[in-house]
């Protein structure tokens, strides 16, 4: 696992060697601001918490995460550098993990830069900071889950547009898998227990319960497990889709 930091540093350097990192962070913060203040009405609610901020994260990540994740492998396949990378003495899992951690760090940096919102609600009122910390943590873990899916999809194609669209679609299914939109599709032909299992897979229920202050370890474990499984799938895809 000693090569994870090496791959990670190269990826990070490449984010910041191009406008990608800056453009991403600026768009991320702008969108967060617009959604929180205009659509979420942070000030109008008369409540000092960050619910109107967090509630948009699952929807914004739906395209922000695939935007970062689409290039992870598709770009390497397009330019042929995947052949260079995978013939270096680095294991596939190391490469997958290093790349994922770099993309995840981009999300983490962007998310951390929303700290003025936290300061604002503390200046204006007396929020439950424990719930806010849990909210940030849940948001970060959920971002990781989205990225892991995007990385997997990216390893299956050399076309970044396809990677983006398919990643967003797959994430959308997981986002809403507790809702009739998705469940009605499975209900007619799957046993009730399976439908129930699918319903429990949704990002939204797990995320919502955390940001509402219902802290349950299961919700955190859900995101971590989900991410680990998709990273493993991504590693399998990188191994098996070479040409």
């Amino acid at each position: 696992m000693k090569n994870i930091p090496v791959v990670y540093r190269r990826e990070m350097a490449s984010y910041f060697a191009t406008p990608l990192a800056y453009v991403f962070i600026i768009i991320f913060l702008t969108l967060m601001g617009i959604f929180t203040f205009y659509l979420g009405g942070l000030f109008g609610r008369g409540q000092s918490d960050l619910q109107p901020f967090f509630v948009w994260h699952p929807w914004l990540y739906l395209f922000l995460a695939p935007a970062l994740g689409m290039r992870l492998w598709a770009e390497e396949r397009k330019t042929g550098t995947i052949e260079l990378l995978m013939t270096l003495p680095v294991s596939t899992l190391e490469a997958v993990a290093g790349k994922f951690l770099a993309a995840w760090s981009m999300m983490a940096v962007s998310l951390a830069l929303t700290f003025p919102m936290w300061i604002t609600v503390n200046v204006l009122g007396d929020p439950d900071n424990g719930v806010i910390v849990a909210g940030y943590l849940a948001s970060l873990l959920m971002a990781g889950s989205y990225l892991a899916v995007s990385g997997f999809v990216s390893a299956l194609t050399r076309n970044q547009v396809i990677a983006f669209v398919v990643s967003a679609a797959v994430c959308f299914v997981f986002l809403l898998s507790g809702f009739p939109l998705v469940l009605d599709f499975f209900r007619p032909w799957l046993p009730a227990s399976m439908v129930k299992a699918i319903a429990a897979m949704g990002f939204l229920q797990h995320f919502d319960s955390i940001i509402k202050g219902v802290l349950n370890a299961v919700d955190f474990v859900y995101f971590i497990t989900f991410t680990a499984l998709w990273l493993y799938a991504g590693s399998w895809a990188v191994e098996n889709y070479r040409n």
Binding site: R10, S14, T18, T79, G80, T81, E83, L84, T87
Partner: peptide, 15 residues
């Protein structure tokens, strides 16, 4: 133990 130059010498352009 191997040094390898793939066909077309792919490189990371931004580095």
């Amino acid at each position: 133990r191997i040094g390898y130059l793939p066909e077309g010498a792919p490189l990371y352009p931004e580095m």
